[in-house]
Amino acid sequence: MVENRPWGNLLAHLILIVGVALVIFPVYVAVIASTQGPGEFLRGTLPLLPGGHALENYSAMWQAGLSRVGAPPVGQMLWNSFVMAMAITLGKLSISLLSAFAIVYFRFPFRLVFFWLIFITLMLPVEVRIIPTFQVVADLNMLNSFAGLSIPLIASATATFLFRQFFMTIPEELMEAARVDGAGPLRFFKDILLPLSVTNIAALFVILFIYGWNQYLWPLLITTDPNYYTIVMGIQRMTTAADSDPQWHLIMATVVMAALPPVLVILFMQRLFVKGLTETEK
C-alpha cells in the first residue's frame, strides 16, 4: 500500500504481533522448560526464564534416553523418524510422479477409472483403514521394521492429483517435440518432466516430510521394539510413564530436538520453493 496511514499500520502490526506471540509462546515455554532442573515443575508455577540445566538435560536425552519408561536415546529415535519420513516422502514422490505421468500421458483402458480410484482414496486417511492395514502388515511380518513403518503410508492421492494437474498445464507440443527429437516416454519423463517439476517436488517434499515426521498413530500400533520407536512415539511414551510424574524437563528437551529436523527441511527447501515462485518457467 502506498498510502501512509500510521494508525492503520499500527493496528496491522499489533494484530500480527499478537498472532506471532500466540504461536511463539508455547515454543518458548518448551525451550525454557528444557533448561530447568528436575524439581522446577513440581512447584506448580511455570518458570519463564531459562534455568541452568540445559546441557545436562540435552546430553542425557541424546545419549541415554529415558530407559525407565522404555524410551531409547533421542539420537536413535530421531534417526528412526528421519528414515521413516524420508522413505515416506521419497516413496510418495516417486510413486505419485509416475502414476500422474501414466494418467496424463498414456492412453490405456480404464484410465479414468484408475484416476478416480486414486482420487477417491483421498477420502480415506490412514486412521480409517488402520485395522485392515495392520492385519496386512502383520501377515507380511513387517511389524517392527522400517518397511512396515513406511510402505503403508506411501500411496498418495494428493500428490498424484497435484502432479496430474501440473502435467496438464505443460503444453502438449513439448511432448510432441520430444517425440520428434527421439525421446521415448521414460527419457521425456527424465529430461523434460522432472526438471520442470522441480519446484513442485520441492514444495511437496516439505509437506510430505512433515507428514511423515509427524506420524503418530501408525508407528504406535506396529512397533513394540524400542529400536524402531520414532521420536513422536517416544515423547508419548515418556509422558504416559506409569507410577511416576512425567519428567517434563527431559520431555521438553526431546520435544525441542524433535522439532528441529522439520524446521531445517523447511529452511533448506524454502529457498528452492521461493526460487520456483519468482522464476516462472515457460
Partner: peptide, 9 residues
C-alpha cells in the same frame, strides 16, 4: 511448432 515448444529448462 506453432508455439515453438522449446524446452524451457
Amino acid at each position: 511448432f506453432q508455439n515453438y515448444a522449446l524446452y524451457p529448462h
